[in-house]
Design a protein around this nucleic acid. Structure first.
Lengths: 190, 190
DNA sequence: CATGGGTCTATGTGATCACAAAAAGCGCGC
DNA sequence: GCGCGCTTTTTGTGATCACATAGACCCATG
C-alpha cells in the first residue's frame, strides 16, 4: 500500500515464510488474502507478484478512488470539527517534510494517513475498507509514479480540502478531493 | 452471492473440506479469500460464518452499489448496441419467470446476471470486480430480504434501464440504475 | 429447576511431507 | 556463437499431524 514494493516484484511462499519466521502455511494464507484484494496477482502456475498495472487499469482505479473518497469526504464533512481539521493540518505539514526529504514511501504513507484520518469521520467502515483496497492495488504503482516526478511543492489540493472543511462547503470539498485523487494519475498517464 | 446461504450461517473448515471432497487446506484458502472480500466473517476465535449485516452496513453497501454501478452503466452506455439490449430484455423476461415461481435464489442470480451483462460492456474489470465484491457481501442479506417481500410484479426499474439504453439517455440511465439498486434496500430498512 | 464447574469433543493453527509441474541451468550439436 | 533438448532445482498444491483453545455437554450442588 505504501509503495515499498515495486510493481512486478515476485514472491515465493517459502521466501515469505522465511522472512517472517513461519512456515509456508501462514504465508500462503496471507498471499491468498492479498490476492483476493487485488494487491497481488497469481499467475496460472501459481507464482505470486505485485501487479504491473496498465494505463486503463490505473484510470479505473483512480475513478474508483474518486467515486468512493468523494462520498466518504462528503459524509465526514458534517462531523468534521476543529480538532479533526487541526490534525489534518498537522499531518499535512509532515507531508511537506517528507517531500523535502524526497522520501517517496513516507510521502505516500503520510498522504494516505491524511485521507484516512478524514474518512474515519464518515463512520462508514465498509466504504473505507473499499477505498483501502483500491489503495492497496495502487501501492506499487504509486511508488513508481511519485518516484518519477520530483516534486518540491507540498500538496496543493490538501489545502483546498482543509479550506472546504473549515467553510463547510460541500461542493468545494467534493471537487478538492476529486482533484487530489486524480491529480497524480494525470501525470502518469499523460 | 446468490443468497443460497442465510446470514449468520456457520461453517467449519473440516465441514467445507468434506463437502467438496478435499482436505482442510483448500477449504482454509477459500475461506481466507472470501473473508478478505467481506463475504465471510471470522470471529476472534477463528470461527467462520456469513455476516449478519446491520442497517447501517446495508445502507453503506447499497450506497457503494449505487456509486459504482451508476458509473459502470454510464461507461457501458456508448457501447450498448441493439444486441446487448436484446439480451438484457431476454434476461429480464426470465427474471419475471423466477418471480412467478417465487424462487428467491434464482431471482437474485438472474437479477445480478442482468446487471453484470450490462456492466461487462463498460470494459472496466476493476470496477466490475468491486461491484461483485459488494454483491458478495450482500448475498445472504438479499436472500433474507427478497424472501420476505412476496412480490409479484417484474422489476420496474429494469425496464427503465432498458428504455434509457435505447434512447441513449445518460441522465435517465443513471437515475434508473440508482433507483434499481437502492429500491430493495428501502424496503428492508424502512 | 437453575447454575456452575469440570470434562470432553470439535475446531482452527502452524508445521511438515510427498508430489507434480514449472522454471532454471546446462551441455550438446549445428 | 546460438538454439534446442535434457536434467536439476525451485516452487506451489494438497494432505496429514500435533497442539492449543474454545465451545458443548453433563452432572452435581444449592
Amino acid at each position: 500500500m505504501h509503495g515499498e514494493i515495486a510493481p512486478g516484484h515476485a514472491f515465493t511462499l517459502r521466501g515469505i515464510g522465511a522472512e517472517f519466521g513461519v512456515s509456508m502455511t501462514p504465508a500462503r494464507e496471507a498471499v491468498r488474502r492479498l490476492s483476493a484484494e487485488g494487491a497481488l496477482t497469481i499467475s496460472s502456475s501459481g507464482r505470486v507478484s505485485t501487479p504491473e498495472l496498465n494505463n486503463e487499469r490505473i484510470e479505473e482505479l483512480a475513478a474508483l478512488r474518486s467515486l468512493i473518497e468523494v462520498e466518504l469526504a462528503s459524509r465526514a464533512l458534517p462531523r468534521a470539527h476543529i480538532a479533526l481539521i487541526d490534525r489534518l493540518q498537522s499531518i499535512n505539514a509532515r507531508v511537506s517534510e517528507d517531500i523535502a526529504h524526497q522520501d517517496a514511501v513516507a510521502y505516500i504513507r503520510r498522504n494516505l494517513e491524511f485521507h484516512r484520518t478524514l474518512y474515519l469521520r464518515a463512520q462508514a467502515p465498509a466504504m473505507l475498507a473499499m477505498a483501502e483496497t483500491v489503495w492497496l492495488q495502487l501501492g506499487p504503482t504509486m511508488r513508481a509514479l511519485y518516484g518519477r516526478l520530483r516534486r518540491k511543492d507540498p500538496p496543493h489540493y490538501h489545502r483546498l480540502i482543509i479550506a472546504a472543511l473549515k467553510a463547510g462547503d460541500e461542493p468545494s470539498l467534493r471537487l478538492a478531493v476529486r482533484s487530489d485523487v486524480t491529480q497524480g494519475l494525470k501525470m502518469l498517464v499523460g
